[in-house]
Design a protein around this nucleic acid. Structure first.
Lengths: 313, 313
DNA sequence: TCCGCGTGTTTGTCCTGGACAAATACGCCT
DNA sequence: AGGCGTATTTGTCCAGGACAAACACGCGGA
């Protein structure tokens, strides 16, 4: 039966805990160990793997490198220095803009200043406006925090703190925008994420963008089973299903889930996918929006198309 | 490499797709097949399992029955009629008299009326006040929805919808209360849940109660690793750790986690636990609050005690 | 009658080592 | 340089065995 599985108890983690923490399936962890000699976990009295914290940290680096295109055979098992060097290489050629806002937020997080963080985020929304905040500043902040965390510069609880404050600020801004005079009209949009995707930030930013366009939005929150997303789409008679994918979710699961979902909802319902997940590719019946800023024009286009369809009839 | 995994193409699903949709791990699916002879999937040319849609539907029934307390050995493999009969039996013996508010909310959920639901919840807060809403009405609503779901009267996505609207309304009420004139002062309280506990509603209602008492609240959101909760408690120099436990979390894990946490934080930090989890018992250094209404008096008592300690010095 | 406790059964998760197809890299020919 | 067939890499699946935690059951004492 399941062990207590404290995901960090005494700095040793079970294979299930590592799977959750790093997003690498159990099978993959075992086959890497067999083929490349890494990771090399300790064993408990029953011969079950116990991963030390440092190996888990290295696994997180590896996950980022593989997601960035490196092949496991070339990087798994190499010393941490090499991995850091490769990561720096990627980071440097990445667009790279942890702007001043990012620095400011990281400083507040390091000082554990929750109230100050919230004030600063609120000020950013006020100054830049909800659209610019959700489309540009927000993703930048989220990435800066994610990078700092994967580098070990931030504790998990600091990341939680950021998420919580960010959510609060953005949600209240969305509420304010909904209350404002703009009349709500179609498309009707349903927001959610797949069961393996617990990150709500991307979804919330998307919701902000759709709200600014005057769409009718309904959110199911995160981690809805795929058949349930389909059922909700039918029940609410939505025009668009908006799904968010972070870089943590395995690409294979994302595309498999999208196929499944596509088969379950009528073709009149569009599926729009977005988020930091790298390998996301457009497929028949699934639209991929690379950036949040693309949502506005896409909604405009949808409305034009819809008007055309009505005129035809 | 992974198959395309079209999990519904021609109504046959791979084992990975079934894991996603039913929430039953691959290992469990295989061991049920080995031990009980069900499910009995077809095989593809490479001997991999292909589950027909009807078996997947039965697996969903089984999951509900097992969650309701039936043991797999007694139900897996029995014909669908029996399973339906058992489900009806569970439903009928469920307690349940739901208040007028619960009825209203359930009706709105059945009508998929998200906007109406939000309005009604908002009206409840206004009429009853935040304290009565969080301490009495909220828990009643949450239970009514939970019961309706376990009876199969509500889909998962309807429960998600409720959670989302409830969260939005309560959070904005908390924000308003924080903004209001009451000066914030100690105790400083940190909110979170254990890693196995994804339910945020109880935590949010507790946050509302503490906020009304004028406490300094910091939330980490749900599912924080236990060592991280301890680290955050030290970093933020909190006086009280407030933890929420739903009835879904195994009691053994809850008490084990509380012991672990108690050992990790200084004894000057109090740990207060609450929620619907039945077996929660007070232990040395851990206080159990049975109802949300108990928070107010408890905070008053804490302050009195604290004043005494200061006076002594 | 009810509760606490030791014993036996059930159950989920982990293990090893092998297999294979999809994805990717490589070498060859035009 | 660019298209194409072959070789390597890689993730996921399989079988069948093992074990500890969770659970049910029966016994003896209050």
């Amino acid at each position: 039966m399941t062990n207590i599985d404290a995901p960090d108890s005494s700095r040793l983690m079970s294979i299930a805990a590592v799977e959750r923490d790093c997003g690498l399936p159990k099978d993959t962890l075992r086959v890497w160990e067999r083929r490349y000699g890494f990771p090399k976990p300790l064993r408990d009295h029953n011969d079950e793997r116990l991963y030390p914290a440092d190996q888990v940290a290295t696994l997180r680096l590896l996950r980022r490198l593989v997601a960035a295109g490196h092949r496991p055979g070339r990087v798994v098992g190499r010393p941490d220095e090499d991995l850091f060097a490769l990561l720096r290489q990627i980071d440097s050629q990445a667009p790279r803009s942890v702007g001043g806002e990012g620095q400011q937020v990281l400083k507040l997080l390091e000082a554990y200043d929750a109230a100050g963080l919230r004030e600063v985020l609120n000020a950013m929304v006020m100054r830049a406006g909800l659209g610019a905040f959700a489309a540009e500043i927000g993703p930048g902040l989220a990435e800066a925090v994610g990078v700092a965390w994967s580098r070990g510069e931030l504790e998990i609880h600091q990341e939680h703190l950021f998420t919580e404050q960010f959510t609060t600020v953005l949600r209240s801004a969305i509420n304010a925008a909904q209350g404002a005079g703009v009349p709500r009209r179609r498309p009707r949009v349903l927001f959610s994420t797949f069961p393996q995707e617990p990150h709500a930030l991307g979804l919330l930013m998307a919701e902000a963008m759709f709200t600014l366009e005057g769409c009718l939005g309904i959110s199911l929150g995160v981690q809805t089973p795929i058949p349930e997303i389909a059922a909700a789409a039918r029940a609410h008679e939505v025009d668009i299903l908006a799904l968010s994918f972070s870089s943590m979710i395995p690409v294979t699961q994302a595309v498999a889930g999208l196929s499944e979902l596509r088969a379950l909802v009528p073709s009149t319902v569009e599926i729009w996918a977005g988020g930091a997940c790298a390998g996301l590719r457009p497929k028949p019946g699934v639209r991929v929006l690379r950036a949040l800023a693309a949502i506005g024009p896409a909604v405009t286009a949808w409305r034009a198309c819809e008007d055309g369809r009505i005129a035809q009839v």
